[in-house]
Design a protein around this nucleic acid. Structure first.
Lengths: 220, 220
DNA sequence: CTGATATTCTCGTGTTCACTTGAATACTTG
DNA sequence: CAAGTATTCAAGTGAACACGAGAATATCAG
């Protein structure tokens, strides 16, 4: 009887460990994080990762055999996307666990961003109340394709390269809040830094589409 | 600037991947699952795993350097436990993702438990309403130490070896519900099967202490 | 059909990992 | 202090993995 139990447990945990293995590589984690923003082709992903297309393809293959992503073809491209909302939750859990348990992550932040101006992101609840009263100018500084896939309600698409043009002659007095992909994305930081140079007070938030239920998000 | 971004992301995802690596081994997953039931010594864990103490100790060391567990000494024993509630949530997420994405897990269930009597566990909400109206005899069939660490309110400790003795001459007409460690634990199945042989109608539930907020659980 | 492009496959190499075995290190207890 | 026990360390072996480079496949446009 106990032998039966062992065989069952061996099999079950071996299956679950396949998902763990998929999460065991920095590259794959970054791929998954990128895919939370919307479906992407192998090429796009490789470009973001600064990795070779062949290598990216191999990682995607592993993610696929662990069932964390699925793919379909669009013309000559293969488009990958997360396999379901369970993957979003899984990623959120592992990054959340990392934040709360790995103090190294906090140290890395201090090392890369010693500037205290980087330190006061708008927390999720404050952002939500600002959005509810329409008391902010919310800019989405991700690439346009990700904005098109999903964006926060009321957000304006201002990809980083368009920042200067968009804010030339800016006079509005609503507070500007920039968001990007979330926790480990630096676009919003870059945007706030640039706007500060231009004398425009802006803040960033680490909240992202991942903090909203999918149904409420806008597309197009 | 993009180089800065890469260095930052390389470092961050390398850190997060440490947690992924910790989840990449069946043994370690099983250890973590066991530790959700309460603190345990290296020896106890090795016994449950049917693994060598040295090997178990090594896995625990890896889990510790990934910050998923922490340890303290009690007399001559080193007691390990989960590092915090974030680890419970992480485990729940990875197993939940496995259940919803890896159809192999469902197939394994069918293979090991073809008996349809295994198929109707009491769902969480039904269990909760039964518990609220005190309309069941809830037995905890885990080892006594785990019952002592934490158990569902109102549950009676009936470790598997005590089953026969406990139900000798049983006449109560309350429905019997057995629970154990949760999803991949077989104790409740074994209990229900034995009780059925004795002509006692009992059901199992896959709900476990992991489904209750820690504050509500009873100890001792 | 041909050329072009996107993606995957196949090796080869260096690295990391799991597990076993046997020894070493604490700590407690008499 | 000594003996016993719980735990960890260290070395060795075989398997798995990551990455790069080049070949192979597949699909679309002309």
């Amino acid at each position: 009887m106990s032998d039966d139990h062992r065989a069952w447990k061996d099999e079950v945990y071996a299956h679950v460990a396949r998902m763990g293995k998929a999460l065991a590589s920095p590259r794959r984690l970054e791929i998954l994080d990128l895919l939370t923003q919307g479906p992407k082709s192998v090429e796009q992903l490789a470009g973001e990762l600064l990795a070779s297309v062949a290598n990216t393809s191999q990682h995607l293959h592993q993610l696929k055999s662990a069932r964390l992503v699925r793919s379909h073809k669009e013309g000559t491209y293969v488009i990958y996307q997360l396999a379901g909302p369970a993957v979003d939750r899984l990623l959120e859990s592992v990054e959340e666990a990392g934040e709360s348990l790995l103090l190294e992550l906090g140290l890395a932040r201090q090392q890369y961003f010693p500037d205290p101006a980087d330190k006061d992101p708008v927390p999720l609840d404050e952002l939500q109340s600002l959005m509810a009263s329409d008391a902010l100018y919310l800019i989405d500084v991700r690439p346009p394709a990700e904005y098109a896939a999903q964006h926060l309600p009321g957000a304006v698409s201002v990809p980083l390269p368009m920042l200067a043009e968009h804010f030339r002659g800016w006079q509005d007095d609503k507070p500007v809040v920039a968001y990007c992909r979330g926790r480990y994305c630096l676009y919003a930081r870059d945007a706030v830094r640039y706007l500060a140079q231009q004398g425009i007070a802006a803040r960033r938030t680490e909240a992202s589409i991942r903090d909203w239920p999918p149904g409420v998000l806008a597309t197009g």
